[in-house]
Design a protein around this nucleic acid. Structure first.
Length: 917
RNA sequence: GCUCGGAUGGUGGAAUGGUAGACACGCAAGACUUAAAAUCUUGUGACCAUAACGGUUGUGCGGGUUCAAGUCCCGCUCCGAGUACCA
């Protein structure tokens, strides 16, 4: 009987389906374990070999935990809303639902071939109305909530209107867009519409006029995490700043909790750091500056200690203050400057590092010295951060320094001995000078002292600022969740929860309307039953992925997002595996969303993902042939220097171990039909390079092909064997034979000349040692996500058992159980061949026995005067005297002792044995 | 600029401060074969040496701690990732 992986894998996959092997339900008798993959967006290209990497790792953990007696929840679904399907729809007219469905079908086929232990009965799709009902439901709840900073949680907005009518805003500390105060009388005298407008200031989901990232090519706004270096992440189109009225989520209200929560999570330090930077907490002070005009304005600074070094002020061009502070003489120059900066896209503004700015004509008064400080306008100050205005301290801030140098403004150094002739001194160290009451203090002491003084004099107050902005939640697109919102007299109202889901309507075209409205403007009867118009934007991609892990707990419940029973059993995700690219997007939004649901009492854990592992990216490994210029002749890699050649990408599927299949190459493209080759040693060797996996580089490897040629078990093992899970690495099919060979070796331990040849004899001590070494190593490795070394451990074990000719049932049985998480198909087959009637996934994970692992001998390190060292083996129970004697009699030691005046010999196993001569 | 990673043979990569290079690929030699493929066996960091034993050196560079450093500490170089006028 040969290892016929194709037949075995197909048969067992069918068995698992027929027996619903991986279906799980709540079981209070067992501890739970929730293993989650980041669900994929089903793109048209299908899966390449890099996608399953994380899925294989999570599947190994799932199967392992199940064998250890856990009740494992391991679901999968699809993040089905997204731009590519819609872009494709615009080009072809094909409805995105159809494209998405066929892509999902293809993904599912590809995933099924790899033998994952998903409970597919729990599948969710974000575009399914039964699913997005709960996305819309959460939105309604956010709309109907405000954030109370005293209680530090979200609360129903009805509570707030009650309080407003009794005491106005007095005594309240609320997260809001604009800080405003009013009395109960003022509130009560407002009209319904005016009250609604004021409530917008506090809702967690609110409609706000904000500067947004507008992408003209995509025809939609984008969130900050969807923009990178001024270009859209999807598509790479330029993005510009534009003021628009948009739905927003008050994520910023949760900034501190999002920051604090990180400490308790088992995430990689680098990912936590990325989130900390994104949240961007900075402690400082707000200071008020009066001006030569009627008004005064506030700035934010983290360096209050540098107040005596302020020589000018700067406003962001978009700041409201500009209008108020510009003088008549400067009006034209300022207007020109603002027009110029407005024309720049975000990208140009970032790329252009040259110093620009214009004087407003006004002056601010220095709060301590009363000196006049010119107020400038420059785009190096951002409208969106702090107050959109700064105090400039050129001596101690490099940007202020560059500006001061360019416009010839004074620079006052404040730290003893610092040299600001060439550059600013930004470091927060040194002794203060030229600083009035702070003179003689260190910078560390001066910062709090300055804030204290500012507060005492009533010039400002301590303030913590966050970089984290509210999430912009509207997209002017078709293929997304519709908002459960309608408009009455221009004010938004949400639908009742009973009216959900509000299904995505059909449209004739997926483009904006002639009047520039989003595609939903084309939908017929897009209004409530009372005839009020419905919202035309749809929700962004991250909406549907923000709470999907909760839905998996109870995916078919039509009454609630997740029942209390299901939620209190599954609680949170014990292990989440996915890519780092979601660090500042999905992983922030999800945490925010979950915290909101936690405040509502829907989710019983405040953090959704306890442990998170980022699998590395699998890059492509391209192959090249070298064409001699102007010919159809190709020269092998190591001879190419002798010719003038052009490297050409060649499809990796016709290259094996970097050797070109020349016939296949001639058939690959008509262009190469007549290709000739210059060979080395009769072979054509291709060059290679690590590049992104993409069609144009001909380096995409499809997992289906690997499964076809080597089997799913080989693919699974090989992906793990490639290197550490978290490391990015190129895919290189070259080494796969070794892994495949290992599986055949395992197979051959069971079968001899086509027959099962398993012995019932008791295993020997040596055989037990080999087995238990494996169990210990693999158990440890799985718990530490070191799958590459566990595959090695299996290979060593197989080699040892082969050379021991070990065919003992007890040994092979445990070996099979250990192998099951990695290579489930072959393990099932061997397990059933051993006569078991249950599946190997329900077999108990074996425990190793230390007694079998005891070493007979132990290596001792012997060093002479700390200058040389030998390692000698001694029996584990050797006494100090025996070791001493043996060391001194050892020829190497004698040689060493004779030629050198040795005073001290040290023998070190775990404990040090000193021999003093 | 800042933050976080990383640097070990021809290649991918192993090494709780304790025999560096496990395991695998590749390569070489051998066995089987008419031959090739497949399979199996042996060898494989570099240098020196040998009939054989063996020796020297070696984990990006320079220091340090230690009986002992790829691993810990200090200072560099290079590479990768993220982030960026965040005051």
């Amino acid at each position: 009987m040969n290892y016929n992986f194709g037949e075995i894998e197909k048969r067992w996959q069918q068995y698992w389906i027929d027996h619903q092997t991986y279906k799980v339900s709540e079981d209070s008798a067992k501890p739970k374990f929730y293993v989650l993959d980041m669900f994929p967006y089903p793109s048209g290209a299908g899966l390449h070999v890099g996608h399953p990497l994380g899925y294989i790792a999570s599947d190994i953990i799932s199967r392992f935990k199940r064998q250890q007696g856990f009740n494992v929840l391991h679901p999968m679904g699809f993040d089905a809303y997204g731009l590519p399907a819609e872009q494709y729809a615009i080009q072809t007219g094909q409805h995105p639902a159809i494209t998405t469905q066929s892509n999902i079908t293809r993904y599912r086929e590809q995933l099924d071939k790899i033998g994952f232990s998903y409970d597919w009965s729990r599948e969710v799709r974000t575009c399914d109305p039964a699913y997005y009902k709960w996305t819309q439901w959460a939105f309604i709840r956010m709309f109907n909530s405000y954030y109370c900073k005293q209680a530090d949680q979200a609360r129903p907005i009805a509570e707030l209107t009650e309080v407003f009518s009794q005491q106005g805003t007095s005594g309240l500390n609320l997260a809001c867009s604009e800080p405003i105060t009013f009395t109960a009388e003022e509130w009560n005298s407002k009209s319904e519409k005016e009250q609604q407008e004021m409530l917008m200031n506090y809702r967690i989901a609110y409609l706000g006029d904000t500067m947004v990232n507008w992408c003209p090519q995509l025809g939609t706004v984008l969130a900050n995490d969807e923009v990178s270096e001024g270009l859209s992440v999807r598509g790479g189109y330029p993005v510009e700043q534009k003021k628009m009225r948009q739905w927003c989520l008050r994520v910023s209200a949760y900034a501190q909790r999002l920051l604090d929560g990180l400490d308790k999570l088992e995430w990689s330090e680098s990912l936590k750091e990325t989130q900390r930077n994104w949240i961007g907490r900075s402690e400082g002070a707000v200071m008020r500056f009066s001006t030569s005009q009627e008004i005064s304005f506030e700035i934010f600074t983290t360096r209050a200690d540098t107040i005596f070094g302020v020589t000018f002020m700067v406003l962001a061009p978009e700041s409201e203050l500009v209008k108020q502070l510009v003088t008549a003489e400067q009006l034209e120059a300022v207007q020109n400057y603002i027009d110029k900066t407005k024309k720049k896209t975000e990208r140009e503004r970032i790329a252009d590092k040259s110093v620009t700015g214009v004087f407003s004509g006004s002056y601010a008064h220095h709060p301590f010295t009363g000196e006049l400080l010119p107020i400038w306008i420059s785009d190096y100050v951002l409208a969106g951060y702090g107050t959109g205005a700064i105090m400039a301290v050129p001596a101690h801030d490099s940007r202020d320094y560059a500006f001061a140098r360019y416009f010839n403004l004074p620079i006052i150094p404040l730290i003893d001995g610092c040299d600001v002739s060439e550059e600013s001194f930004d470091a927060k160290v040194g002794i203060m000078v030229n600083s009035g009451f702070m003179n003689g203090l260190t910078v560390r002491e001066a910062i709090p002292a300055a804030i204290e003084e500012v507060e005492k004099r009533g010039l400002g107050y301590r303030k913590i600022n966050f970089r984290l902005r509210d999430a912009i939640f509207s997209r002017q697109r078709y293929w997304g969740e519709p908002f459960p919102v309608y408009y009455k007299e221009g004010m938004p109202y949400t639908l009742n929860e009973e009216e959900l889901p509000l299904e995505l309507p059909e449209v004739d075209k997926f483009l904006p309307t002639e009047t520039g409205e989003p595609p939903l403007g084309r939908a017929k009867n897009w209004q409530t039953s009372e005839g009020y118009p419905l919202e035309l934007s749809t929700m962004p991609g991250f909406a549907g992925s923000s709470a999907y892990y909760l839905r998996y707990m109870d995916p078919h419940n039509s009454d609630v997002l997740v029942s209390e029973d299901a939620n209190s059993y599954w609680r949170d995700v014990d292990l989440y595996i996915g890519g780092t690219e979601h660090a500042t997007g999905h992983l922030i939004y999800s945490r925010f969303w979950n915290k909101f649901l936690f405040d509502l009492g829907v989710s019983c854990e405040e953090e959704p993902f306890k442990k998170l592992v980022n699998q590395g990216m699998i890059q492509g490994r391209s192959n090249f042939v070298y064409r001699i210029k102007g010919t159809n002749k190709f020269v092998s890699l190591n001879l190419r220097d002798q010719y003038d050649v052009t490297p050409i990408h060649v499809d990796v599927s016709i290259v094996h171990n970097d050797l070109l299949d020349m016939d296949a190459f001639r058939n690959w493209s008509p262009e190469y039909r007549t290709a000739e080759f210059v060979l080395e040693e009769g072979r054509y060797v291709c060059g290679w390079a690590v590049e992104k996996m993409s069609k144009s580089m001909y380096n995409v490897v499809n997992p289906d092909d690997i499964v076809e040629n080597y089997g799913a078990d080989t693919l699974r093992l090989y992906e793990m064997f490639l290197g550490p899970l978290e490391q990015s690495k190129p895919w290189d099919t070259n080494g796969i034979d070794g892994v495949h060979r290992f599986l055949r070796k395992i197979w051959n331990l069971f079968f001899k000349e086509g027959m099962l040849a398993v012995s019932e004899d008791e295993p020997t001590k040596e055989e037990l040692k080999t087995l238990h070494k494996l169990i210990r190593k693999v158990t440890y490795d799985i718990e530490h996500f070191s799958f590459n070394t566990s595959v090695s451990a299996f290979m060593i074990c197989a080699n040892e058992l082969t050379s021991l000719q070990c065919r003992k049932r007890t040994v092979l049985s445990d070996l099979t159980v250990c192998l099951a998480p990695f290579a489930p198909h072959i393990a099932e087959e061997l397990w059933s061949q051993l006569g078991n009637t249950s599946t190997v996934c329900d077999a108990q994970w074996p425990q190793w026995n230390e007694a079998y692992l005891k070493e007979d001998s132990f290596p001792y390190a012997i060093s002479f005067n700390g200058k040389s060292r030998y390692i000698l083996d001694f029996p584990a129970d050797a006494t100090k005297e025996e070791i001493e004697k043996a060391v001194l009699e050892h020829p190497n030691s004698q040689k060493w002792i004779d030629g050198n005046s040795v005073k001290k010999v040290i023998i070190v196993p775990k404990k040090i044995v000193n021999i003093v001569l």
